[in-house]
Amino acid sequence: MDVHLLHLAVRWLHVLAMAVALGGAALVFVLAARARQIGVPAVALLQLAASYEWVFWLAAGTLAMTGIGNLGAFGAGLPSPQTGWGTTLVVKLSVVVLLVMLSLPRTLAVARLAFAAPSHVADVLRTLYAFTSATFALVVAIAIWLAHG
C-alpha cells in the first residue's frame, strides 16, 4: 500500500471525526439554547442528544486511533517534548484527556435524563454541550497550531 496515501487517509478520517464531534456538539448546544424560542420538545432534544452520544464515542475512538497514526507518521523524527511544538502537543493531549474524562458523565447524564425527560432539560443540555463545544474548539485550535504553527 502507498504509505503517502495511507497517511492522507488517516488524516482525512481524523479531521472528519473531529468535524462530526465538534459540529454535533455545537448543534445540540444551539438547539438546547434556543429550544424554548423555536419550540423543541424536551423528549426530542434528549433523543437528539442521545444520538449524538453514540456518534461522539465513535468519533472519540476514531480520533484516538488516527491521532496515534498521525504521530506515527513522524516516527523517530517526532520533536522532543522540550521543544515549543512538543510542549503544545503535551497541552493538547492533556486537554483531550480532560475532554474524554468529562464526556463520560455527560453521556451518563443524558442516558439518565432519558428516563424522566424533565421540562427544563434544555438548561442542563445547554451547559453540558457548551462545555463540550468549547473544549473541542480549544483542541482544534491547538491542532491547527501544531499543523501550521
Binding site: 463520560l104 458523565p105 455527560r106 453521556t107 451518563l108 447524564a109 439518565r112 435524563l113 424522566a116 424533565p118 427544563h120 432539560v121 438548561d123 442542563v124 453540558l128
Partner: peptide
Amino acid sequence: RLARRLSAENN
C-alpha cells in the same frame, strides 16, 4: 457520581 449529580439536580 458526577453524572448522577448533573442529572439529579434537574429532576
